[in-house]
């Protein structure tokens, strides 16, 4: 224990109270009331949940959202891993360049980036024209494939940064040791580097998965209502149908899925902190 200063401290609770009060008003209570409402409106019980199972749409949409989220995670990981790896071995100047290239999209307006995808994917847009050179008719706008492609690009920085932050901590002498003991570079990478980078992989995948689950803007702008994702369904139930209890039930399901993922993953990594470490460390 460090020696305690003789002066009186501000009571420590007072330091937390304002922040907690704000979170209660603008975050905690809203969530609590929407969860409660899903169990009590119109009457106490699971009506809203059984209705959700029976309407024939919600489960399809949830499954589609999970599928999209998993695809986005896999694609983002495949793109981000080599990039983060090179970031971690590059010279300081090279690293500065690669870091800047990740931070640019990370900080750039979400609306601008989605609008850019709309321009690229629109009818007669650059992507269609490019593929028509090969005689292919590619329609991305309004499809799940288009939404997946755009989401992968939009969320890519959230995969690169946690990966880089954990790869940075890997002691590269371990690889040299393995190779001096006769391991081929490939074997050394697979047996040493890959397992050591696992915390970053877990953190990045969790973060991107959770963000994908609740992603709204990309599917709303680039997707279609026939192939909507959970976020679109939530928005429609809330603002168009004013079915607050139904929306609450769907929101609760999303919360539970997120909570489960975090609870399982929490044993291995802390995605939020590692993202923070990554962005804080390279700013």
């Amino acid at each position: 224990m460090p020696p305690r200063p003789a002066r009186r401290h501000v009571p420590r609770v007072l330091l937390f109270l304002p922040a907690l009060a704000l979170l209660a008003v603008a975050f905690g209570l809203p969530l609590l009331q929407i969860v409660l409402r899903s169990f009590t409106d119109p009457d106490v019980g699971l009506t809203n949940y059984t209705a959700m199972l029976d309407d024939g749409i919600t489960t399809t949409v949830i499954l589609r959202t999970l599928r999209v989220a998993v695809t986005v995670v896999v694609l983002a990981l495949l793109l981000a891993y080599p990039y983060a790896y090179v970031m971690s071995i590059a010279s300081p100047a090279g690293r500065a360049v690669l870091t800047t290239l990740v931070l640019l999209p990370f900080w750039t307006s979400l609306m601008a980036r989605n609008f850019a995808w709309l321009l690229l994917m629109q009818d007669g847009g650059p992507i269609q024209r490019f593929f028509s050179l090969f005689g292919l008719d590619v329609v991305l706008l309004g499809t799940t494939v288009g939404v997946t492609v755009a989401m992968t690009q939009v969320l890519l920085p959230f995969m690169v940064l946690p990966l880089y932050s954990s790869m940075q901590q890997i002691d590269r002498r371990l690889l040299q040791a393995a190779q001096s003991l006769g391991a081929k570079p490939r074997t050394a990478f697979r047996k040493i580097y890959l397992p050591l980078s696992a915390p970053g992989v877990v953190a990045g995948c969790t973060l991107v998965f959770i963000l994908s689950l609740g992603f709204y803007i990309t599917p709303a702008l680039l997707g279609s209502s026939q192939q909507s994702l959970v976020a679109q369904l939530l928005a429609i139930r809330t603002t168009a149908l004013l079915d607050f209890a139904g929306a609450g039930a769907l929101g609760t399901v999303l919360l539970v899925i997120t909570g489960l993922v975090l609870a399982v993953i929490g044993r291995f990594a802390r995605p939020a902190s590692s993202l923070a470490a990554a962005t804080g460390g390279v700013k």
Binding site: F27, I210, G214, F215, Y216, A235, G248, G251
Partner: peptide
């Protein structure tokens, strides 16, 4: 850690 859309509708 809470999906944005859920926070949005709740608020």
């Amino acid at each position: 850690t809470v999906p944005n859309i859920v926070t949005a509708i709740a608020v």
